[in-house]
Design a protein around this nucleic acid. Structure first.
Lengths: 337, 337
DNA sequence: CTGAAAGCGCTAACAT
DNA sequence: ATGTTAGCGCTTTCAG
């Protein structure tokens, strides 16, 4: 295990110069730099992160906190974060927090222990105190998918986009529009399902359409859940809706599958619009609103890195991430009665 | 930022005693321990990881290397690893290595820099040299999903299980059995697709059935890919197979969808068996071989922790992870001709 | 059982 | 541009 000292010795330089030469910071003559690099290469020198972190206070490591890594949205964000971080030479520490009690420990034991320079929290509402703690020790936070008081956030306009999705259906001529909502048990921290539901209702109301409670069903954000809920909806409603707005693409796909099993043709008999931009949507011809989670992850990293590099402690900024409506084949005019 | 020194002062003890009291190592009188803990709590003391890592050489951090986090298998492994690690008080550093050239840098810059105590590599063939390097600096490795010379590995019997899957079909009476293989472009490091293909061919041969090249098609392990490949198979074959063994559940599901679009009924007209144990399999009634990636991830952590704790530098051990055939509704006797 | 002191390997003033 | 010198905050001999 060659240390910087060995390198210095071999290069005939001081450790300080070697450190500067290797890190690129500070003034070093080209000649010394070359000698340092050569010596380091010869010895297979690899600097110790802990030592340099301890000495400098920087970690080159950011923490990513997600409720699960197993759902498309979250793994897409993670991939975006990971790629951006790798490019920047940072490590990514993954905190897959599940139960409520574990959150405590994660935040306290890990994040606060200055192992990470910053935190990206996805769909996780931190308390004001937690945020203040992090910020107090100079650890920037960016939240994806919801408001985080005092921290920077990236999110989409859930209510507005839901409204737009429903309006797409209304413009096609639908008036019997159901909603497949997400169960907040599975999204405990943010009220995304509720916000999307609110957008749905607002669009209906704005168009003078009735909000029928029996046309709002709930599932767990998965294909399986969407399938079951859609069957319930289609099988139990006295009057069947002609269109459905699902709060996630996974549930939308489940609904398409469920509707098919009921002998309904998409979109001839039943239109479905989703939300997220899931890659599987293409296969099902799913009309959806693409929110590019990969890009959101990359943006979070950029914000953080700029904040880290620029140094200013400006208060959190909020970014509304751009989305786009992708019209495919799962939505069309309602069937003639 | 209270340090251990402040705690020591407040507790009226030396830093050494506080360190021992808080870490639980070494002999400390109950009274001192209590005082140290109280003082630490009062001050909100949180030990610095880098400082203790630097001093002790231990990191409480393991690296997980995956080719992608976006596919069910890998995110399931990651979740298993993450949960087990959290329980043990370890951090998880995620290395999502994609292109070949990045691998170099990941291994060198990150893994070797003693940031991690050990590495779990999923479906990633490390070179002998890479393994030796890691082992040389006392960093255990466990590989999941393939052989890693010198390191410990966890894998399933790909060839044997594929054979079993095909035999399931043969026993049902099928003789025209196709194979949906994985494209090794997407699995560059291990020859899993080839191994599964070999098992398929072996089973056919053992049963005296002909291996027809046109009945082996290839996709990228995804649902979309499986869908397209299955349509190709079903649409192009002069003589249509009555059953299909897919090298992943995702592709199997795609194939079911593709077959449905061809008007085939599963399993009446066409049987499909997959491999992996994807949670979506249930919805499609997919017969499959469950390999429990979550459990494999947890096991990898256990192996590592035991190795780390026990200390012995025994040579890598190989574990064959148990699997089970789950017979659902996608396989049945072949149609009468 | 406890304390003093010597580092862990590097970075960052501060001199030169 | 380069070297010297303190630490970063903790763990760990080594004495007592």
């Amino acid at each position: 295990m060659a240390g910087i000292k060995d390198v210095a010795e071999r290069a005939g330089l001081s450790v300080a110069t070697v450190s500067r030469a290797l890190s690129g910071k500070g003034n070093v003559s080209p000649a010394s730099r070359a000698r340092a690099q050569a010596a380091a290469a010869d010895l297979g020198f690899v600097p110790s992160y802990q030592a340099s972190s301890l000495a400098s206070g920087r970690n080159y490591n950011i923490g990513l906190v997600v409720p699960t890594i197993n759902r498309w949205y979250f793994s897409s964000v993670a991939e975006g974060v990971s790629a951006a971080l790798l490019d920047a030479g940072y490590d990514l520490t993954l905190y897959n927090v599940t139960e409520a009690n574990r959150r405590q420990s994660v935040l306290h034991d890990f994040l606060l222990r200055k192992r990470v320079d910053a935190v990206i929290a996805v769909a996780l509402a931190l308390t004001d105190e937690e945020i203040q703690q992090m910020l107090a020790v100079h650890r920037p936070i960016v939240g994806i998918g919801g408001a985080l008081k005092g921290a920077s956030t990236i999110s989409i306009d859930d209510a507005g986009l839901s409204e737009a999705a429903v309006n797409h259906l209304i413009q096609l001529g639908h008036s019997r529009i159901a909603h497949l909502s997400g169960d907040s048990v599975y999204e405990p921290d943010f009220k995304i399902p509720r916000t999307r539901l609110a957008g749905y209702e607002r669009a209906l109301l704005a168009a003078g359409l009735e909000v029928r409670p029996e046309w709002t069903v709930t599932a767990d954000f998965t294909i399986q859940g969407g399938y079951a809920a859609a069957r319930q909806l289609l099988g139990a409603s006295a009057e069947r809706p002609t269109a459905l707005f699902a709060a996630s693409d996974e549930m939308a796909i489940g609904a398409i599958l469920g509707a098919r099993d009921f002998g309904l043709r998409i979109p001839g008999d039943f239109s479905v619009i989703g939300m997220d931009g899931h890659e599987l949507g293409e296969l099902f011809g799913l009309t959806t609103i693409d929110q590019d989670p990969h890009g959101q992850g990359a943006l979070a990293v950029r914000l953080l890195l700029e904040g880290l590099g620029g140094g200013k402690d400006r208060p959190g900024i909020h970014t509304e991430y751009p989305t786009r409506l992708i019209v495919r084949r799962s939505t069309a005019v309602p069937p003639r009665l």
